[in-house]
């Protein structure tokens, strides 16, 4: 009994891949989305003479950089099968904490640390409720969404914190060189970091495995709760980073800061091709989606179309990019 299973034949060779990288790229969501982005870019350049201006384009990036920072972490969280709707409220709480610190005379390094620490603490709170107590994240984070912003309201009421130190303004208003803002550099850097984390590391692989089947992942020896805990921490941390940038850009803190952003961040992630049911999606997709949303807002803005109307376009895009391929498939059948 030495040879078994192969029934006397030589083991058959299984190729690594069926399709080359080119074929996979052609069928990818990212390419479709990229085409949309290019089309919007071209349409905008024709529609407005002010569009193809380096400073204007640079300004436009502020429409999405802060949201995109959160969207990277949110993408991982959604791929793992969870969601965090409290991100905008975390921004509010971080900003409030930073503003309060300013009142006690904190300098820029302390403010930044407090912002990041508050974000981490909020993320940890969500993480404990979801991973330790086993509660559904969508409900938990609807709760903490009210709770975190609620604390900001208790602290600030209808008041505001101002008086941030002058050098604190750099995070939201500074430029690294020429038209390249600090925020944009940070966005690009984080995009690369999250790309590596999701697509090039063991951790990223575990995120996908958990999102496709958390039970089987756990039965494969993956510490599911630990991975999810880290993802909630990361999302909280990124909200803290976004809070620093946004607060610095605005120069003040009100409890209504970043109101409604959670849904815009989720929209960005879903538009980027991340399945809301978990298990699939990519960072390049989210990056392109960020640009699409930013370009739409900016382009329509140049045409004097107000932001709220642009949201129609974003909403149509969100549903359309999923609905059209399905409608097409139904039509052909």
């Amino acid at each position: 009994m030495t040879e078994t299973a192969s029934h006397g034949q030589a083991p058959r060779h299984i190729p690594d891949r069926l399709q080359g990288p080119g074929a996979r790229l052609l069928k990818s969501w990212e390419l479709l989305l990229f085409a949309v982005a290019v089309a919007i870019f071209v349409a905008n350049s024709f529609a407005s003479p002010y569009f193809l201006n380096a400073w204007n384009l640079s300004d436009a990036t502020f429409n999405f950089t802060e949201k995109a920072m959160i969207a990277f972490a949110m993408a991982l969280l959604i791929i793992s099968g969870e969601i965090d709707l409290s991100v905008a409220s975390i921004i509010a709480l971080c900003s409030t904490a930073m503003g309060a610190a300013v009142q006690y005379g904190a300098g820029t390094p302390e403010i930044v640390l407090i912002g990041l620490a508050t974000g981490l603490a909020c993320g940890a709170f969500n993480a404990v409720l979801v991973t330790k107590m086993g509660l559904p994240s969508i409900v938990v984070t609807i709760g903490t969404m009210s709770l975190f912003r609620g604390i900001s309201y208790i602290v600030l009421g209808d008041g505001a914190y101002r008086g941030y130190p002058a050098d604190f303004a750099y995070f939201g208003q500074g430029y690294v060189f020429w038209v390249i803002s600090f925020e944009f550099v940070l966005f690009a850097l984080l995009a690369v970091l999250y790309y590596i984390l999701l697509h090039r590391t063991n951790f990223g692989r575990m995120v996908y495995a958990i999102g496709n089947n958390a039970t089987a992942a756990s039965f494969s020896g993956i510490r599911v709760a630990r991975v999810k805990f880290i993802l909630f921490l990361l999302t909280g941390l990124m909200s803290g980073v976004a809070a620093i940038c946004l607060t610095s850009r605005l120069g003040s803190t009100r409890p209504s800061i970043a109101f409604g952003w959670e849904l815009e961040v989720v929209t960005m992630v879903v538009l980027g091709g991340v399945s809301i049911l978990g298990g699939s999606g990519s960072i390049p997709g989210v990056v392109i989606a960020a640009f699409v949303m930013g370009l739409v807002t900016f382009g329509l803005g140049l045409l004097n179309v107000p932001g709220i109307v642009m949201s129609i376009f974003i909403g149509l895009l969100l549903i359309g990019v999923i609905a059209l391929p399905r409608l097409w498939a139904m039509w052909r059948r």
Binding site: L129, V139, I142, T144, L147, G150, Y153, L156, G157, D158
Partner: peptide, 13 residues
């Protein structure tokens, strides 16, 4: 009344 949001959040959790 600014407490309302935090209370309902806690109630949800």
């Amino acid at each position: 009344p600014f407490w309302q949001l935090a209370i309902s959040g806690t109630a949800i959790i």
